[in-house]
Structure formats: structure tokens, C-alpha cells
């Protein structure tokens, strides 16, 4: 009788282990979206300026009714309803990775459309752009300066002023010149230098020791 009980216990334990693993296998789902480009490649994308579409080029494409143009606005629907660039499609950045939207973009990319995404300003669409790029969507561009830049362009156009494209990551000032105008050279700045970053080896926190 005792021996039988033991066997039962063993069977129960074995079955439980098997059941847990089966449940795990069943509940395991493949992640819906996965990065297609390794992080080391993304660093190269970041420094490549050819993805930035200046407003003047966009205006040119719109004037010619370029069939390849696919404009995407990543701001929220409320802002989109208030104002947006004509012919733009609204995909709020929060819903960017939904299956439907991703498929839409993949299809657009396959149709050789030039997908240009924009946000309210130069920075707003940056994250959306980079995340889609990391998912491996091709033909993806970002509008320089966003809706702000477009509006500025329209304004200047309406009063016949020349419009100069604002390039992101271009210094707006000559820094050293400004500093010199205040009577300092950049080397005199050394006085304000703080300690550089100290490099120490990473150490994990110690936890309570275990034992039997």
C-alpha cells in the first residue's frame, strides 16, 4: 500500500511537470512584430542624411501629382483633423505597430511608393520613422521639419518670399563666434569644465546567500 502511494506521488509530480510545460508551449506566442535590422545597422541609418525629404521636394512632388507619393501623418487624430498636409493619411504613432497599419505600409513599400512620414515638428516623427525602419520597411522617408516646415513654406509662398529648407542637424549658429562675442574663446571655457565621466566596472548587487 505504501509503495503504491509512492508511485502515485511520482506519477502526479511527473504529470504536473509535463502539464506545466505543455501549457507553456501552448501559451507561447511568436512576437507579432520583430526587428529585421540589427541594432548595429541602425546606427548607420542614423547618420545617413539621404532619408530626409526637404519640404521643397515634397511640394514639387505634390505639384506634379506624383503617383509614388504616400504621405503619412503620425500625429493624433484630433490634431490631424485640425490641420494636415493635403492627401496625407493619418496613422497615429501609438497605433503604428498594429497589424493593419504595418500591412498597409508594407504594401505601400512593395508598390514602390515613396512613403514620407511627418509629425508636428522636426522631431515628432523621428521615433516612428526609426522604428519602422528597424522593422525593415523600405522606401521610408521623413519630412524635414514636419508640418511646421510645410506651413512655413506655404506662408512664404503666399507672400512670395524665398523659402530655404531647414536642414535638421545643421548648426543654427556659429557657436564659437557667439562665445567670442562674449569675450571668451572655447578654450577659456575649460574653467567651467566638470569632471569627465568616470569609468568603473559594472558590478551586480549582492543578494542574500543561499544554502541548504
Amino acid at each position: 500500500m505504501k509503495e503504491l502511494n509512492r508511485t502515485d506521488r511520482l506519477t502526479i509530480a511527473t504529470t504536473m511537470l509535463a502539464i506545466i510545460l505543455i501549457i507553456g508551449l501552448v501559451t507561447m506566442r511568436k512576437p507579432a512584430v520583430e526587428f529585421a535590422i540589427p541594432a548595429t545597422e541602425v546606427a548607420k541609418l542614423a547618420t545617413d542624411p539621404s532619408y530626409v525629404i526637404p519640404v521643397t521636394i515634397l511640394a514639387e512632388m505634390m505639384k506634379n501629382n506624383d503617383p509614388a507619393l504616400a504621405l503619412i501623418d503620425v500625429r493624433n487624430p484630433v490634431k490631424f483633423r485640425q490641420e494636415h498636409i493635403p492627401s496625407a493619411l493619418n496613422i497615429p504613432s501609438a497605433d503604428l505597430l498594429s497589424e493593419q497599419n504595418l500591412n498597409l505600409m508594407k504594401n505601400l513599400a512593395e508598390e514602390d511608393k515613396k512613403i514620407i512620414i511627418y509629425g508636428g515638428n522636426h522631431l515628432e516623427a523621428n521615433g516612428s520613422w526609426l522604428i519602422l525602419k528597424q522593422l525593415g520597411i523600405n522606401n521610408l522617408y521623413i519630412l524635414d521639419a514636419g508640418l511646421e516646415g510645410y506651413n512655413l513654406y506655404r506662408q512664404n509662398l503666399s507672400v512670395n518670399l524665398p523659402f530655404e529648407d531647414v536642414k535638421s542637424e545643421r548648426p543654427a549658429y556659429n557657436y564659437n563666434e557667439i562665445l567670442n562675442s562674449f569675450g571668451t574663446s572655447s578654450s577659456a571655457q575649460e574653467t567651467g569644465k566638470t569632471e569627465p565621466v568616470r569609468i568603473t566596472k559594472k558590478a551586480k548587487k549582492s543578494a542574500a546567500e543561499g544554502g541548504c
Binding site: 541594432a39 541602425v42 546606427a43 541609418l45 542614423a46 547618420t47 522636426h122 522631431l123 523621428n126 521615433g127 526609426l130 522604428i131 535638421s168 542637424e169 545643421r170 548648426p171 543654427a172
Partner: peptide
């Protein structure tokens, strides 16, 4: 960075 695009991209990576 010069403005915040490059720094933001670094942050994302």
C-alpha cells in the same frame, strides 16, 4: 547633438 534628431536616434538605438 546639433539639434535633437541625432541624439534622439541614439536614444532609440
Amino acid at each position: 547633438s546639433t539639434d535633437d534628431i541625432l541624439a534622439d536616434q541614439t536614444w532609440i538605438i
